[in-house]
Lab assay of single mutants.
Amino acid sequence: MPVRRGHVAPQNTFLDTIIRKFEGQSRKFIIANARVENCAVIYCNDGFCELCGYSRAEVMQRPCTCDFLHGPRTQRRAAAQIAQALLGAEERKVEIAFYRKDGSCFLCLVDVVPVKNEDGAVIMFILNFEVVMEKDMVGSPAHDTNHRGPPTSWLAPGRAKTFRLKLPALLALTARESSVRSGGAGGAGAPGAVVVDVDLTPAAPSSESLALDEVTAMDNHVAGLGPAEERRALVGPGSPPRSAPGQLPSPRAHSLNPDASGSSCSLARTRSRESCASVRRASSADDIEAMRAGVLPPPPRHASTGAMHPLRSGLLNSTSDSDLVRYRTISKIPQITLNFVDLKGDPFLASPTSDREIIAPKIKERTHNVTEKVTQVLSLGADVLPEYKLQAPRIHRWTILHYSPFKAVWDWLILLLVIYTAVFTPYSAAFLLKETEEGPPATECGYACQPLAVVDLIVDIMFIVDILINFRTTYVNANEEVVSHPGRIAVHYFKGWFLIDMVAAIPFDLLI
């Protein structure tokens, strides 16, 4: 008679799926529990143990900040960024110097990925580790590398530091407007667009060049630039800015003055950032001319202004700041037409079709709590990747769950009947059967004279019903998954307890 339990259901295979997918890609990662103190490590794979030199037993239950890997060259700011990422709910990448158990130093890129439950609360953290440099290539500990984003994938490793954006290309926007319009339909740009040429040739750093990471940081200074100062900065030398009595002219307006920039070969870094931020506020060169004239017309309804409409929906549905990093990277690809469009465009503009998908598509409701890094690593669709929660398995109709209350009560009843059979069957065979043979035949009273025979008949009927119930009862397979398919249940029961239950259900007393 089957006594099969499996009270692990309803099970959740999400954690096993993450481990299996990460292991298949030869990654070095740990999984931490966000619900406990210090976000203790609950799993670390073999790749991480080989990377740091510690065994799994030495890593388990330690804080996922990996303070046991810190050393003299470990930056405090990087460690603080990892700790801050564990307090938030967004994906974050941090470069930090770690030390192995043998004392060797290596520069590592740590990717902190939160995993949320159905309520939107962070319950786990996945920390992925990628070695960037070994100890002989690690720089000085005073050099802070965590304020910069990861290198873009479309640049060669040897040319990542030679990417320079020439400031004269930004200063000569109005001069290039006529050349853009003359391109017409034969050019790649839309009317009114501004073409910015980027020099990728390796050259020595000069005062006129600005690194790509500095251009990325310009967006942080746009908020500090007032509207009046932006307007004066875009007017140009024809209309000098008016300053109040006793007030000095704005240095932001002076930063885009061609006369002032041409007199000296070098520009201050602050002026460069502010000038680029001011130019980015204009949607095209037409807006710059309109600002000089004193009238700013409404933005025209053409394809170039609607190019950012799908980007707005993608940004609203993005799951991490990696989408913004990807957008900034692609927006700086050289030799393309940049349409400086305000994100607050007309909502009635139709979304044009684009061959290049900048932001990841909208994630469906079932995966809105899973970050983009987890979705990318697992390579699963929205119909396959579940949320991290207890999910009731989908069972067929008329199927009994093996952990249901009805099955528990039924098993206790069958257990009592088995005990009765084990006690009274030998007793009936030894004593009652002998008395029946010696006594007179009682054929007239039937079952009324033999109450134990009636009980034995009921017990046999219950055993037959138990066999039928076992054909529709779920079970737990070797992978700790609840199986509810009727065919698989029948095959599993035939290979197991079916023969024993059938022999126990045969009414031998009635056959004798």
Rank of each mutant, 00 (worst) to 15 (best):
V3S: 14
G6R: 01
V8E: 12
V8N: 04
D16T: 06
R20K: 07
Q25E: 14
A32W: 01
N33T: 09
N33K: 04
R35G: 11
V36W: 06
E37T: 14
V41R: 01
C49H: 01
C49N: 10
V59S: 01
C64T: 06
C64L: 02
A79T: 07
A83M: 13
A89T: 13
E90F: 13
E91G: 09
R92H: 13
E95R: 13
K101N: 01
G103T: 10
F106Y: 03
L109H: 05
D111W: 05
V112W: 01
K116T: 10
G120Y: 06
A121P: 11
F125Q: 12
E134Y: 06
E134V: 06
D136L: 05
V138W: 05
S140C: 07
N146L: 15
R148L: 08
P150H: 09
P150W: 06
P151V: 13
A156H: 12
P157W: 12
K166F: 05
A169T: 12
L171S: 07
A175D: 07
S178L: 04
V180C: 11
V180N: 09
V195S: 05
V198N: 05
P202F: 01
E208D: 15
E208V: 06
D213W: 03
T216A: 10
T216I: 10
D219N: 15
V222I: 11
P227A: 05
E230F: 06
S243K: 03
Q247S: 15
P249E: 05
S255R: 14
S261E: 14
G262V: 14
S263K: 15
A268E: 07
A277Q: 06
V279T: 07
V279G: 11
R280V: 12
R280M: 14
V295K: 11
L296I: 13
P299R: 08
T305S: 07
H309F: 14
S313V: 07
T319C: 05
D321V: 14
T329M: 03
K332N: 08
K332M: 05
Q335T: 11
Q335P: 14
I336W: 15
F340L: 15
D342K: 07
D342M: 01
L343S: 15
A350Q: 07
T367H: 11
T367P: 12
H368F: 11
K373P: 03
T375S: 07
S379P: 04
L380H: 01
G381K: 05
L385A: 11
